[in-house]
Amino acid sequence: MNNPLTTEQHDSVWSPLYQQRAFRALMSAFSFPGRRQPLPLCSDATGPTCIAAVLCDNEVSLADPDQLIQPADIRRLGIREASLENAGFIIADGSRAPDFAPALGSLAEPEQGATIIVRVASLESTNDFPLMLEGPGIQDTQALAVSGLNRAWLAERARWNRNFPMGADLILVDDTQVVALPRTTRIRGGTN
């Protein structure tokens, strides 16, 4: 009586099975901030599009100032486009300093704070950009190396998140991996 997920094409980012697996990677990423989680392999999209396909539909609004998602994919997802100040989801290029003020939610509705998907060059371990993370989901401290993230992001993120529970949550993504930085994560370092 049911459609098993496995009868469908698995490696397409639009298949329910892919989206379920990618969501579990994202849920692990948010549970353990700063830990790299591999995205499941897919044949037809890159990192930012994978995240958008998992989380976005016509119920949410998206701002994509750097055009990181193909217009055809935006139409396929049916996402409403919005300005950077109002969008629920923002997709941005991490190499450029953020020059916008995202939605941070309100005291009564902090979940209205934006989710910002930041495309970076690589999340592979390097000594290039060592960050030390603390907060919920991290036992003591967690080290994170990111290449291709403009340092201004860290200062801006700290400013957005200074009034908990309001704030914005970041998802860093390269081509194959994802790291989440929810608003509760405190970051030290970033200068080398």
Binding site: Q19, M27, L55, E111, P182
Partner: peptide, 22 residues
């Protein structure tokens, strides 16, 4: 699969991530 339609799942997934963040 899983009774819920994909739109329902996607909404719950978004909410789970926000719940973990706050």
């Amino acid at each position: 699969f899983g009774f819920l339609d994909e739109f329902a799942k996607r909404e719950i997934r978004r909410v789970i991530l926000k719940a973990i963040s706050i």
